[in-house]
């Protein structure tokens, strides 16, 4: 598989899997306004997934739909963070914030990519990610610095998700080649800005970042996804699996 295709899968699968996760709230969010906001976010992400997977598909001779709906778990290249279950609203918004704080600087850097297609997709997505981060940050602050119950739930959310927050910044051979080709930034170079964003928000939210430096990995190279991804795919891919090629 060529490097652009592999990279586009990493970007597209992050957006697709997180978009699907967020869409699971549709009709269940704690307030009507949050429900609509989450649905908007999910649609933004699925729109981004379509662009990245179309790019990957051009290199692989497959359509975006085929990539989304007919690959198995080990072919997915999303971060472990985005496949983690929604649990409660606090976990959902903490996951969103930890991802957005990484996604925005990544997309901003990609806007200057040597690949015009990558730069074009990143530029369009960065506007959406800017709003996502604005909203998820505000929610994390409001809930962390909220009632005793919301504070406790946000503390639990951080404990659950923190070990999945470091994978995004671990560079591998593909990243090295992408940096050399000027296509994408070194993921580790994004870490400082992510830490600034997260630290300042958690301080406002009266939350402490967990001290652990242990991070799960295996999502972005597909080597070891958590069991949750398979469950997502079961639901997300059901129609195309049961009725191959179905269209309407």
């Amino acid at each position: 598989m060529d490097d652009i295709a592999e990279f586009a899968l990493r970007m597209g699968d992050n957006a697709l899997v997180l978009g699907h996760r967020v869409s699971e709230w549709c009709g269940h969010a704690p307030a009507l306004e949050e429900d609509i906001a989450l649905a908007n976010t999910a649609l933004d992400l699925i729109g981004q997934a379509r662009m990245w997977l179309e790019l990957a598909g051009e290199h692989l001779g497959r359509t975006a739909d085929q990539l989304a709906f007919t690959r198995d778990a080990w072919d997915f290249r999303n971060l472990l963070l985005v496949e983690q279950p929604n649990r409660d609203f606090g976990v959902t918004m903490t996951r969103q914030f930890l991802f957005d704080a990484f996604h925005l600087p990544l997309l901003t850097a990609l806007s200057g990519s040597s690949s015009p297609r990558v730069a074009e997709i990143a530029l369009k997505s960065a506007k959406e990610a800017t709003y996502h981060l604005d909203r998820s940050r505000a929610t994390v602050v409001a809930l962390g610095d909220g009632t005793p119950e919301s504070h406790a739930r946000m503390r639990d959310a951080l404990d659950i998700l923190w070990p999945y927050s470091g994978e995004a910044f671990l560079a591998d051979d593909l990243d090295t080649r992408l940096v050399e080709a000027g296509i994408a930034p070194d993921p580790s170079s994004l870490r400082a800005e992510w830490e600034r964003t997260v630290t300042s928000a958690l301080a406002e939210a009266t939350l402490d970042a967990p001290g652990s430096g242990f991070f799960h990995q295996g999502g972005r190279d597909g080597s070891r996804h958590t069991e949750h991804l398979g469950h997502i795919l079961t639901e997300m891919q059901f129609l195309q699996r049961a009725y191959p090629g179905a269209a309407w």
């Binding site: 307030a31 306004e33 609509i36 906001a37 908007n40 505000a138 409001a142």
Partner: peptide
């Protein structure tokens, strides 16, 4: 109209709704 905890959130919610 819509519900929101504060003015900033009301603007965000209005953007989404």
């Amino acid at each position: 109209s819509l519900h929101a905890p504060d003015a900033e959130s009301a603007i965000r919610n209005a953007r989404d709704v």
